[in-house]
């Protein structure tokens, strides 16, 4: 009976993964460490506030954002110099107050501003892209426990079904063995 219902549901909806709830920061840190050590790569943790050490216990690599920001800054510096050289000293040479067509001191402010501007835009866009934002829907949203406690006192770990280590029965019991107070199945749209 229940077998039949499950397979009927599976025909229209697919299993996205499991959501395990933990009671404290320490339990969350310990659980994410063990999930990481078990070889899972497609999992995420949710907490109502930033937790020191969660990045390490989840095995998250250093962000690539600094490289994007550096690239933006270098692009801005080159663009600023090129813009001023091109407009004043090459494309339309115009003598102003006896100054050189291209004087480096006077070109620095614009170059500086463009460096900062493109680095900041790189940081902003890069942050959105790296975090896959904006994301208007996530499979954890409909979960009742998540809705009730994710922003107050609930600590969650979500393991995705597309993780190569994922196993319908094994992963559930693994999460329970880590001290999860509940493990819910999440469905994809």
């Amino acid at each position: 009976m229940s077998e039949a219902r499950t397979s009927a549901a599976a025909a229209t909806r697919t299993r996205w993964g499991y959501l395990a709830e933990f009671e404290s920061v320490d339990a969350l840190l310990e659980a994410t460490e063990k999930v990481r050590d078990a070889g899972f790569t497609r999992f995420d943790a949710f907490a109502p506030f930033p937790i020191h050490g969660l990045d390490e216990s989840m095995g998250i690599r250093t962000s690539r954002l600094p490289r994007i920001v550096f690239g933006g800054g270098v692009t801005g510096a080159c663009a600023g110099l090129l813009l001023q050289w091109w407009t004043n000293a090459f494309d339309y040479r115009y003598l102003i107050g006896g100054k050189p067509f291209f004087g480096l001191p006077v070109a620095i402010p614009i170059t500086f501003e463009l460096t900062v501007l493109l680095a900041a835009i790189g940081a902003f866009i890069g942050l959105l892209v790296a975090n896959r934002l904006p994301e208007l829907y996530h499979p954890v949203f409909p979960n009742a426990a998540f809705r009730a406690r994710a922003t107050t006192d609930g600590f969650f770990v979500a393991v995705e079904a597309r993780d190569p280590r994922f196993d319908v029965v094994g992963t559930r019991s693994f999460l329970e063995s880590l001290g999860a107070v509940r493990v819910d199945e999440l469905e994809d749209e």
């Binding site: 100054k99 004087g103 001191p105 006077v106 620095i108 402010p109």
Partner: peptide, 10 residues
């Protein structure tokens, strides 16, 4: 240092 230079240079 640059701020000190640029105004007088200009």
């Amino acid at each position: 240092a640059f701020s000190q230079l640029m105004l007088q240079w200009y």
